[in-house]
Amino acid sequence: MNFHRLLALGLAFPLSVAFAAGKHVHGEGRLDAVIDKETITLNLELPLDAAVGFERPPRNDKEKAALAATDKTLKEAAALFVPTPAARCTVQSVQAQVPFTGGDDKHGEHGHEGETHHADIEASYVFRCAEPAALKGIETALFKHFKRLYRLETQRSGPSGQGAQRLTPKVPVLTW
């Protein structure tokens, strides 16, 4: 009898399905966080549906406005992600790509075996912290802005090691 083998058989199989990379689940986003010395790097992936409720080119002005508003929200990094205040972190750079806005529409759009179309928002943020030792966590306002988003699967690599955490509207703080 080997406990590890049991664990592997009993648990890893369903997990292997659930955690397969590049999965697109409506309402579920992904957030990768690296904390390296004084720098925080965040990479965000959201299904477009979670932000605006559709995943295709906009059909009217209202939908266009929704995409533009999402783009604007995602670029306000300081309001979207709040690291521990005592660490005194400031935004260094913001990149956000919302499908169907601007010229480069192909990015973030991909098909699944040609059946249905999905579109993902991709954004990345870099913060620099004056007091990295005080850094204990990052609170996100994503759930407040995007009501259709109910879950954010996070991966983290930092001074205290690596970890995974599931953020939800009730638990919107990434901690380590």
Binding site: L7, A8, A12, S16, F19
Partner: peptide
């Protein structure tokens, strides 16, 4: 947790991440 410090990534054939980690680090499963 003690067993996995210092390794940034574990790479294997396409499959479940947990399964890969258990096999590579703990030699458990297959």
């Amino acid at each position: 947790a003690q067993s996995v410090s210092g390794v940034d990534l574990v790479v294997g054939a396409r499959g479940g991440g947990v399964q890969l980690m258990l096999y590579a680090v703990f030699h458990a499963g297959s």
